[in-house]
């Protein structure tokens, strides 16, 4: 069975992790789904890298069992709050993955 990521998360957010990194926290609705995401490694795919505008080798994915969460950390396109940055604390940068099929 497949679903859109947005429909199967209790928490899905993005924020700065310092001025040069962006981090996405994805908490799926169940431990089973967390296990599936970890097993099939959907969130480490080329498609995810492409949607986030980074190369596959720039994706840092951590499976955080205590928090039932998957964390994706990537370099920022531009440093937070630079003149050409349009999302100063990175708060809307989860949006490209909302419709990802999982």
């Amino acid at each position: 069975m497949t679903a859109r990521l947005r429909d199967v998360c209790d928490l899905f957010r993005s924020r700065n992790a310092g001025a040069f990194l962006l981090t996405l926290d994805i908490v799926p609705v169940s431990a089973e789904l967390f296990d599936r995401l970890q097993a099939d490694r959907t969130l480490e795919s080329d498609q995810v890298a492409q949607l986030l505008g980074v190369s596959r080798s720039d994706l840092r994915v951590t499976y955080y069992r205590q928090g039932n969460a998957v964390k994706i950390t990537i370099p920022r396109r531009v440093a937070g709050g630079s003149p050409d940055d349009h999302d100063v604390d990175g708060a809307q940068q989860f949006v490209p993955l909302l419709n990802l099929t999982v």
């Binding site: 700065n16 992790a17 908490v27 951590t62 039932n68 950390t73």
Partner: peptide
């Protein structure tokens, strides 16, 4: 426990 553990994610590159 969920909320407290989740805070290790917040604005960190790694929760661990």
């Amino acid at each position: 426990p969920q909320r407290v553990a989740a805070h290790m994610l917040y604005e960190n590159a790694s929760p661990y």
